[in-house]
Amino acid sequence: MSQDLAYLKESASQTAGPYVHIGLAPGAAGFDIYRQELGHDITGPNAKGDRIRIEGRVIDGMGAPIKDVLLEVWQANANGHYAHPEGGGEVEDGFRGWGRVISDFDTGEWSFETVKPGKTQGRNVGTQAPHLNFWIVARGINIGLNTRMYFEDEVEANDADPVLNLIEWKHRRTTLIAQRSEEGGMSVYRFDIQLQGENETVFFDV
């Protein structure tokens, strides 16, 4: 016998289920209860940088879009700072950098507007390419899935990114890179997340 380390164990995850909207986006469930729902405004009114839209779908192993998915995003501001005491520096007043996004119940399409994040500090040295952190929950997903979205038009930064470079299979890195188009002068990035199949998105054990 030896001493007990006395750490607690993390509570086990359980699926968010089909009715996650009641708790996290009650308006979508069909009723109005809170003064304000959280996560609609990612940047606040004072954020500098390029306004962009990000859109996509989460696609299941049958090739069908998931229509009851909820995603959360966590990102730095245009200077590469997170709104957090250890986030690398100051952010604009009102910038939270966190958003909560749900898919359309009929099509599975989701989208949100934000500002394009800057490069963030690397784990030890150097920088990480601009990216958004995603966390995905839904009925049938037993534990939230973590992934990252990078930008097609950041070729040089992506090539040097320490996390993309961790992925042994180069073709799988492309599953994390959103494709850019332009609509009415605004950059739109398409990020379809594949849960299974040949093009399964890379998920991270963070």
Partner: peptide, 13 residues
């Protein structure tokens, strides 16, 4: 969970 579960190993980060 069958159609909604990733099949490849997660990348440890």
């Amino acid at each position: 969970s069958v159609a909604r579960s990733p099949r490849y190993s997660m990348i440890s980060l």
